[in-house]
Amino acid sequence: MELTTIWFILIAVLWIGYFCLEGFDFGVGMLLPFLAKDDTDRRVMINTIGPVWDGNEVWLLVAGGATFAAFPEWYATLFSGFYLPLLLILVALIVRGLAFEYRAKRDDAKWRRNWDIAIVVGSFVPALLWGVAFANILRGVPIDADHEYVGGFFTLLNPYALVGGLTTLLLFLSHGAVFLALKTDGPIRHRAGTLASTLTAAAVGAAAVFLVWTQAETGTMGSGVAFLAAAAALGAALVATIRRREGWAFLGTFVAIALAVAGLFLALFPDVMPTTLADGAGLTTTNAAATSYTLKIMTVVAVCFTPIVLIYQGWTYWVFRKRIAAHHIPTAPATDPAPAAR
């Protein structure tokens, strides 16, 4: 197998890891105003992802870095053509990270409420725009013979891409609700389990439309198998949510997202960014790749360090595996009484 193909697969694996792990982070953030009744509930929800959300974002950083090093032409065309949506995603992720860090810095209801809004918006924007971006990569965009994107921002807002954005949005909402049902106890667990059934049913409908559309437009036999398996996993997740089997439901949404993303990359290969122009030149794993020497060095580095990262992140999830409930949240310390006058 050629190194270009190996690195295409590795980048696909990195995106699968990112969407499966960061997906429930986005879902929890978006569900904050719908499942929490008071500040204690909001703290419970945020604490379910508190120890892991920043580690989950490492998958995105590594995916971007791997794309830059292994396929520099793909990286350059993608980031120049998708500049505005990717900038919006980046700003949303920054604001969301600040909200997690600064929310508890002041004991003020308005302060916390404003940061809660930042968490919701910072989760919603990437959840929607990642689907829009990947749908456009699959569908193809106007790229000229010099590998330059010649479309505009509204070129990316086509019906197929919007359906893709709606699909990722609903999948992440469902994934997040199931995760909350799995990780919490008490009233939030009950509310999350109830909402998860509705959201998973909606995700099934949106995913069916998007995956069938994708298969009809650019699908291969491999992508078709992956999409069917993803549909089966999402259907099993729906059954599990109805029966309140949180562990199986989370496994179902996790596997469904993984298989769906794998199917998208199978449908894309060997292209990495096809063109819609008759006189244009699309990007493939061959003409967008770095030199063979660069790929060899990167492969050695990946073989050495990837297992360490996986072991560390797996250990983190194991340490913070227990459920969280309202009684685990410490109350705010009482204000010290004024000293007695002397």
Results as ranks from 00 to 15, higher is better:
165 G>Y: 01
49 I>T: 10
154 F>Q: 01
281 A>S: 12
312 Y>L: 13
175 H>A: 10
130 W>I: 07
189 R>A: 13
20 C>S: 13
308 I>S: 03
78 L>R: 12
21 L>N: 08
100 F>N: 03
162 L>K: 02
128 L>V: 14
279 D>A: 15
111 W>G: 10
106 R>C: 06
222 G>E: 12
92 A>N: 03
257 I>V: 11
90 L>T: 08
220 T>S: 15
274 P>H: 00
112 R>V: 11
336 D>G: 11
149 Y>G: 09
29 G>N: 05
247 G>Y: 13
290 A>Q: 05
213 W>Q: 12
66 A>H: 04
80 S>G: 12
309 V>E: 01
91 V>W: 11
198 T>A: 15
29 G>L: 02
110 K>R: 15
326 A>F: 08
249 A>V: 08
335 T>W: 00
209 V>I: 15
30 M>D: 00
34 F>M: 10
208 A>Q: 08
239 V>Y: 14
214 T>V: 00
77 T>N: 03
38 D>I: 09
154 F>Y: 10
175 H>R: 03
339 P>H: 02
307 P>L: 07
274 P>E: 05
8 F>D: 04
68 F>R: 07
188 I>K: 09
328 H>G: 12
7 W>E: 11
55 G>L: 00
127 A>E: 00
132 V>H: 03
179 F>D: 06
225 V>G: 06
34 F>I: 07
318 W>H: 13
106 R>N: 13
227 F>K: 05
144 D>F: 01
